[in-house]
Design a protein around this nucleic acid. Structure first.
Lengths: 192, 192
DNA sequence: TTTGACTATATGATATGTCCTATAGGAGAG
DNA sequence: CTCTCCTATAGGACATATCATATAGTCAAA
């Protein structure tokens, strides 16, 4: 669902090919909030075309194979406009590291430490990546609504990653009871 | 993958049925970092049994139908132990609201405001839910390693939701340039 | 001139996740 | 005695996402 509207959103600004969508849009910015595989993009474009949301025009390129440029139809524009005004569900969180943390009481402190340190590295790198995204400062184009929204969107990414980094640092510093403590119990085990 | 190890992790602490896994473990706590559907749990239990990671013992219940209790085998325990020590990828973020924000420059301020207000409501509710999870205070069992890890895990959830709430509040207050500003452009459009 | 890199589209296979429905025992309400 | 709720397991259908591979044109380097 959402991938379709991400594609419609981009193509509504600028008609382009599946290849461009992948390399210019998704790989550069969109992946931070909605990653998508090449094959998934092509298949979704096909489906949206069949549904009458998009039309494709084949243009021959001076360098490389023909380019199939997708344009949003009036029907697609209407469907997009409706979706853009519809409240969305919050994101589903699926973090395998939290399974490890939550059930990691049998690991040694060193083992836990190592897992946490790795996550810290990864999330620091992610934060650094967000900081490095080459987006013009708002002051450069103070009247650009689109740019303002890009900055806001990017700022959430940074806040989330900062939250991870701060939490992971706290976890590293936390001194846990020794592994040979009490028997682990499920939070909701009636015996608890 | 991760769902399998979540199941093994839980069953390694306490053997139980698919029903219990769903209602006692996933619905209560695990869903915050790895939600799972009932049918997915049952199918994964079946697959893990076929792989020799689990064994099932059917016990007749005094009230209700028979209970199929799953136990982790030695092979399963070993596979779990390996996974528990393996570094994990950071979570994939897929937030449809950020598609709306990122490409929402054609919406009116009122329309954007309404979308943001809804997200704020939802994330505030989520934060409140985290605050309300009935987990005994660490001080009550200061030697319980498992409990300490539960608190750490829960704390990340709270931090993330707080980051969302603070960001959304900032978005509400942000004064954006009017919709009739400059033409929207893709960040990585060469013409930019 | 072959090889590799980049542009460009497409499909098969598989994994994962969601929604819905079927089946069935036991308990309590009406 | 039927209806509903809770416990309990299971599978069909579908949607979504990932991984791998095939095809093909253009260009530059070896």
């Amino acid at each position: 669902m959402s991938l379709s509207y991400a594609l419609l959103s981009i193509l509504n600004i600028l008609p382009m090919t599946g290849y461009d969508l992948k390399h210019q849009a998704f790989d550069q910015t969109v992946r931070y909030y909605w990653p998508a595989d090449q094959s998934q993009i092509y298949r979704t474009l096909k489906r949206l075309t069949e549904k009458g949301m998009l039309t494709a025009t084949v243009e021959d390129s001076d360098q490389g194979p023909d380019r199939k440029v997708y344009h949003v139809t009036e029907k697609g524009r209407q469907a997009l406009a409706d979706w853009q005004r519809t409240d969305q569900q919050p994101p589903t969180i699926r973090d395998p590291f939290l399974i490890q943390m939550s059930f990691g009481s049998e690991l040694t402190n060193d083992e836990l430490h190592s897992l946490i340190a790795h996550q810290l590295e990864v999330h620091r790198a992610q934060l650094a990546e967000y900081q490095a995204i080459p987006i013009p400062p708002r002051e450069a184009f103070p009247q650009n609504r689109w740019l303002a929204l890009q900055h806001l969107t990017l700022d959430l990414g940074r806040r989330i990653e900062r939250a991870y980094v701060e939490w992971l640092q706290m976890c590293l510093d936390a001194d846990l009871p020794a592994p040979e403590g009490q028997e682990p119990r499920l939070l909701d085990n009636p015996d608890n």
